[in-house]
Amino acid sequence: MLRISNTVELPDHEIEIHQIRAQGAGGQNVNKVASAVHLRFDIRASSLPDFYKERLLALSDQRISKDGVIVIKAQEHRTLELNKEDALNRLRELIRQAIRQRKTRKPTRPTKASQRRRVDKKVKKGKTKALRGKVRP
């Protein structure tokens, strides 16, 4: 189970993880072995609520393809376990970004005092602008 938040969990069978081990391409790091993890998550086939699926599909992220598949590649010169954990953390953060509620402020009416202050400020500013460039007697 991959826990995203207190209310959202993903079963392990919905996340495909392919572990790839390949020899380096040459150069100075000939003896290093690159351990890569390719994580694949199908949004439409997942057990996420439909509301979250729509939000995920609406995100503008290059890791989300048009057919609703998230592909995350973690490839560093470190162990497979660390790369796997990194890919899962990236998926977790992407889903959190989609399910996070945007806080909207309720519009409030200005008070009489604040309206009066704003009008007084505009009048004062207008008077000083009108007097610019004029010689006072």
Results as ranks from 00 to 15, higher is better:
Met1Lys: 02
Leu2Asn: 01
Arg3Tyr: 10
Ser5Asn: 09
Asn6His: 09
Asn6Gln: 15
Asn6Lys: 12
Asn6Glu: 15
Thr7Ile: 05
Val8His: 03
Leu10Trp: 09
Leu10Val: 11
Pro11Asp: 05
Pro11Met: 06
Asp12Lys: 04
Asp12Cys: 03
His13Leu: 03
Ile15Gly: 00
His18Tyr: 13
Arg21Ala: 12
Arg21Lys: 08
Ala22Thr: 11
Ala22Asp: 05
Ala22Trp: 05
Ala25His: 03
Ala25Pro: 06
Gly26Trp: 02
Asn29Gln: 08
Asn31Glu: 09
Val33Glu: 12
Val33Phe: 15
Ala34Val: 08
Ala34Ser: 07
Ala34Cys: 08
Ser35Ile: 04
Ser35Ala: 11
Ala36Met: 15
Ala36Tyr: 10
Val37Pro: 01
Val37Gln: 00
Phe41Arg: 00
Asp42Val: 04
Asp42Thr: 05
Ile43Gly: 00
Arg44His: 13
Arg44Asp: 13
Ala45Phe: 07
Ser47Leu: 06
Pro49Glu: 03
Phe51Ala: 05
Glu54Met: 13
Leu56Glu: 00
Leu57Arg: 05
Leu57Gly: 03
Leu59Lys: 04
Ser60Glu: 11
Asp61Val: 14
Gln62Leu: 15
Ser65Lys: 03
Lys66Asn: 08
Lys66Ile: 10
Asp67Ser: 13
Asp67Asn: 12
Asp67Arg: 07
Val69Asp: 01
Ile70Thr: 00
Ile70His: 00
Lys73Trp: 10
Ala74Gly: 07
Gln75Tyr: 06
Glu76Leu: 08
Glu76Tyr: 13
His77Asn: 06
His77Trp: 10
Arg78Gln: 14
Arg78Leu: 06
Leu80Asn: 10
Leu80Pro: 05
Glu81Ser: 15
Glu81Gly: 09
Asn83Ala: 04
Asn83Arg: 04
Lys84Gln: 14
Glu85Arg: 14
Glu85His: 07
Ala87Met: 07
Arg90Leu: 03
Arg92Asn: 06
Arg92His: 11
Glu93Lys: 05
Leu94His: 01
Leu94Ser: 01
Ile95Ser: 00
Arg96Cys: 15
Arg100Ala: 11
Arg102Ile: 06
Lys103Ala: 02
Arg105Asn: 04
Lys106Pro: 00
Pro107Ser: 08
Pro107Ala: 05
Thr108Gly: 01
Arg109Met: 14
Thr111Met: 10
Thr111Pro: 03
Thr111His: 08
Ala113Gly: 07
Gln115Asp: 14
Arg116Phe: 15
Arg116His: 09
Arg117Pro: 03
Arg117His: 12
Arg117Glu: 09
Arg117Asp: 07
Arg118Gly: 08
Arg118Phe: 12
Arg118Cys: 03
Arg118Ile: 10
Lys121Asn: 11
Lys121Pro: 04
Lys122Gln: 15
Val123Phe: 06
Lys125Trp: 12
Gly126Ile: 07
Gly126Asp: 11
Lys127His: 14
Thr128Val: 15
Thr128Ile: 14
Lys129Trp: 14
Ala130Pro: 02
Leu131Trp: 03
Leu131Gln: 09
Arg132Gly: 06
Arg132Phe: 09
Arg132Glu: 13
Gly133Phe: 11
Lys134Met: 12
Arg136Thr: 08
Pro137Gln: 07
